[in-house]
Write a protein that binds this DNA or RNA. Structure first.
Length: 380
RNA sequence: GCGAGAGUGCCCGAGUGGAUCAAGGGAGCUGCCUGUAACACAGCCGCGCUUCGGCGCACGUAGGUUCGAAUCCUACCUCUCGCA
């Protein structure tokens, strides 16, 4: 079986991999053991949120991200570029982005925060992240060309500063510590412009990173995946580098991105969908044979639908998760309708299990066409 | 039993004679949700008809006054507080 593996300080990531978003240091509604038992390999956390809540000194006092969250497998930390961008896009008075970095004061916050490329890297490393992501200057596809230009220039400059800070931090580490170093990923911006995407990707490759991410909002106004842009960007980055489709988590979109060569995914969608009662269902039990991705291979189950009131079936036939092996759709619907918190946990466990199974199925589908080889991705 | 007060849509609650549909919350329902969302946002939200323009019935119940009543009057029912 061919296996593409990312070796990290806290373990390996077998690619492709989906990492649930534990933005604030927790996958909402579930505990670390739930996440682990479902087969999740790693989590994505976010410095933008964590530096505010609970704050860096508290995180350090609690033994850093892994100890704090009771999670001893890999953690990728996001730089905060996207979140700052989203915040400021929604409310221009909430912050400002300049060449120096980002200053922001979220509503309700006591003080102003600031993030620079250097600071983002310092924080991520000090928190004990396994993969550090460069601070990027995010845009929306529909933003004007001038802004895309500016975003690309800034993202490249910031990436260089992140790399410098990253190597500086590594050098300062004591030699006696024989732990594996974290990886550093850069993010390719460029909005909807092929030339800018290429320019950004090539400049980042020149600087040299362990992996790359597709940056910017990955969907168009109608919610469709920006396939052309994603495919093109992946094609510019050599195949030996893993690529992270940041924020892509809808199963269909994950499949599409995987086929383009993306192997790392993170999103709040599967867990959020779970919380609002939108559950993922396999058309056929993935444990009973290879998944045929050609047809309608999965569907949504809306737990509130009246037709489920007396359903004694599990959410997804054959699913081996705690929720499906133990509880019926009818009971889960009841839990949701009466607002019991248990629903959030059970639903989240199921959707996360679905994503793990999806990754296994994607890996199997690759094995069916690839020549067997062991391919361990090495650091630059 | 006596005295005082109160009964408004699923819940809370404004409204004390008149303009269009009983204000406004909450709950509920629909939609939205992809590197922030148990949030926020948008729509619906008394009942019955409808040729989709409307029509009829609803403010504890039943009568009454009035051109017109959730609003005023009478009786009854129910609840709350106080006194026995």
């Amino acid at each position: 079986m061919s296996d593409r593996i990312l070796r990290l300080p806290h373990g390996e990531l077998h690619l492709p991999v989906f990492l649930p978003d534990a933005t604030l240091g927790v996958v909402r509604a579930v505990d670390a053991l739930d996440v682990e038992q479902v087969g999740t390999q790693g989590l994505v956390m976010n410095v933008f949120h964590l530096m505010q809540k609970p704050g860096s000194s508290t995180i350090h006092a609690l033994g850093n991200l892994h100890a704090m969250a009771g999670w001893n497998r890999p953690i990728i930390t996001d730089s905060g570029g996207f979140q700052a961008y989203s915040l400021i896009r929604q409310n221009p008075r909430a912050g400002r982005i300049s060449d120096q970095g980002i200053r922001f004061k979220p509503e309700g916050a006591e003080r102003e925060f600031q993030l620079s490329p250097e600071k983002s890297v310092q924080l991520q490393m000090s928190y004990g992240a396994d993969v550090v992501i460069c601070l990027d200057d995010c845009t929306h596809v529909e933003d004007p060309p001038e802004e895309q230009r500016l975003s690309v220039d800034r993202t490249i400059k910031w990436a260089r500063r992140c790399k410098d800070e990253f190597t500086r931090q590594l050098r300062q580490r004591k030699r006696s510590v024989v732990e594996e170093r974290p990886l550093l990923f850069a993010v390719v911006q460029g909005g909807g412009h092929l030339d800018l995407r290429r320019e950004c990707a090539e400049a980042l490759l020149e600087i040299g990173f362990d992996g790359y991410g597709y940056g910017g909002w990955p969907l168009d106004g109608a919610g469709h995946l920006l396939e052309e842009m994603l495919r093109f960007t992946r094609s510019v980055i050599p195949a030996e580098f893993p690529m992270h489709a940041l924020g892509v988590g809808q199963p269909e979109n994950v499949l599409a991105c995987f086929r383009m060569g993306y192997e790392i995914f993170d999103s709040a969608l599967p867990t959020r969908d779970a919380r609002v009662g939108r559950l993922y269902v396999w058309a056929t039990d993935p444990g009973s044979g290879p998944v045929m991705f050609e047809n309608k291979w999965w569907s949504y189950l809306y737990i509130d639908d009246d037709k489920h009131i007396k359903s004694n079936n599990p959410i997804s036939p054959g699913c081996d998760c705690l929720t499906c092996t133990r509880y019926s759709i009818g009971y889960l619907r009841h839990l949701h309708k009466c607002g019991d918190m248990l629903f959030f946990r059970l639903a989240t466990i199921h959707n996360l299990r679905f994503m793990v199974q999806l990754m296994q199925a994607l890996r199997a589908s690759r094995d069916a066409v690839d020549t067997p080889s062991n391919d361990v991705l090495t650091a630059v």
